[in-house]
Design a protein around this nucleic acid. Structure first.
Lengths: 123, 123
DNA sequence: GTCAAAATCAACCTCTTGGTTGATAACAAC
DNA sequence: GTTGTTATCAACCAAGAGGTTGATTTTGAC
């Protein structure tokens, strides 16, 4: 339960982090390779401090990590976190689709039953 | 461009909507089938108005739609929106993975070059 | 040691968010 | 037409998010 709650929290942080277009863009840029805070910051029309805050949010969500190179803090994308989201999404999509198929099955059965009420249980 | 911006906005709304655990739970419940506002609300320790607000957020993100049945508003999950997220995630994950493979290739080449510095431009 | 660069910390401001309570609208049932 | 149910609207409040500017830390270069 504590585990589950922690996982929930994590997922909340990840979704919340990606709800911001600037942060999504940062993630997109990082797929081209690591970048320092100021390199990333130069792309946006906000202060460096604001970018630093964005990176902190991404870091706390586990989406990026920071290394050290003198004063620089090269930011690195942690792509594995995507799996957490994909799992959540796929789980509920699969469940929803399964239900639709069941519903389709019911409707099809109702349909064939009304057309010809012999021939039940046909493949 | 306006198209792209709209898409960005949409994605922001979707991620933002799913950043809340209660709303994720609502989505999860809806995979079991449609439910009215009060049916959904009975599961949570907040007012019905709060649930109504959550549903409005989910609706504006395109994750659910509401039907009408007398006073009731059966809420329906729109599973297609999941594709929007999956596409975004998969796109950048794929790009990140491709880069890692390229990096692996470079490292492998550097390695073989240091071992035997003949054999340049191989394959 | 001094200086400039990279990044973060701290305080502050405004807008949004998630919650509340109370009033209102729409509809079925009687 | 009155009543009870379902859902939403409206006004309000506390907390959080994203932005700012100014001060501070850490480090390489000179």
């Amino acid at each position: 339960m504590a585990q589950q709650a922690a996982a929930e929290d994590r997922l909340s942080r990840v979704f919340s982090a990606l709800a911001d277009p600037t942060r999504r863009d940062i993630v997109a840029r990082l797929t081209d390779g690591d970048a320092t805070v100021s390199e990333l910051g130069s792309a946006y029309d906000v202060s460096l401090q604001a970018v630093s805050k964005h990176l902190k949010v991404l870091e706390e969500a586990g989406l990026v990590t920071k290394g050290r190179d003198a004063q620089r803090r090269p930011v690195h994308l942690e792509a594995e976190v995507f799996d957490l989201m994909t799992k959540w999404i796929e789980r509920y999509r699969a469940q929803a689709e399964a239900r639709y198929q069941r519903l389709d099955g019911v409707l099809a059965e109702m349909d064939s039953a009304s057309n010809l009420d012999t021939n039940r249980g046909a493949s």
